[in-house]
């Protein structure tokens, strides 16, 4: 148990003293996972709505694929993105390997299936309720998507949060495409992996606690906002 209490006090110390190196790592983690989730939402929300509302050949296969890809191993995504962005790969000339941008690409791919699959579910459920009314009003396809996405905003926020949780917690993809370069691509999870491999379990666990606190904080904030808004909007 001494490891655990040591970890707790280390985590506290890092937070209280606002250790600049730790702040940089936390900032990068939030920036990378946040951008990835933002981009995944920009693509995934409309994609989910399209899948929920329109029929086209191959739609069923796409839905099954999205659902399956929710559990995609981060390492596999990382490896795929690495091969794409490697200087010997097809997109090597962009020069993004071992940069935060590469990590954003990988995490976006990781989060996209979650956001798209969950928002498809949310929109499909809403359509059950709204379908007749919207058809009665003569709302067009695009208008239906926009209306349902907006009216499902509180549930969709949960989908986006699930994506953020996955992005912030994964280590496999960012390790491969970011390279865990100190001060450049070192995130909370790769630092934890590194400190663990150095046998500094207390520091690793301390950082883990900070990560958990961060993700919990974001979730709590969104939960409270959602509660308040739900009560207000019915």
């Amino acid at each position: 148990m001494s490891d655990l209490s040591q970890a707790l006090s280390l985590a506290l110390e890092l937070v209280v003293t606002l250790d600049p190196q730790m702040l940089g790592i936390v900032r990068l983690s939030v920036l990378v996972s946040g951008s990835a989730v933002l981009l995944a939402a920009l693509i995934g929300l409309p994609l989910g709505a399209v899948l929920a509302l329109s029929a086209f050949p191959g739609r069923g296969a796409l839905v099954v694929m999205l659902n399956a890809f929710m559990g995609l191993p981060p390492v596999v995504v990382g490896l795929g993105v690495y091969l794409l962005l490697s200087r010997a790969g097809p997109l090597g000339e962009a020069g993004l390997l071992f940069t935060p941008a590469a990590m954003v690409v990988a995490q976006t791919l990781l989060v996209l299936p979650i956001v798209a699959a969950l928002s498809r579910q949310v929109v499909a459920d809403l359509w059950e309720e709204y379908g007749e009314q919207l058809r009665s009003l003569g709302v067009s396809g695009l208008g239906r998507m926009a209306t349902l996405l907006w009216d499902g905003r509180f549930s969709l926020l949960t989908a986006v949060l699930a994506g953020f949780g996955r992005a912030a917690a994964e280590v496999g993809a960012v390790m491969i495409v970011g390279g865990n370069i100190k001060g450049v691509t070192r995130t909370m999870t790769t630092t934890i992996a590194l400190e663990t491999s150095k046998g500094d379990l207390a520091l690793a666990l301390g950082l883990g606690l900070i990560l958990i606190a961060l993700v919990t904080g974001v979730n709590a904030a969104v939960f409270l906002v959602g509660q308040w808004a739900r009560r207000r909007m019915g």
Binding site: E129, Y130, Q133, W150, D151, R153, M233, G234
Partner: peptide
Amino acid sequence: MVFQRPVLLRR
């Protein structure tokens, strides 16, 4: 058309 249970938008 007005339905038995109105479907109002969340706004």
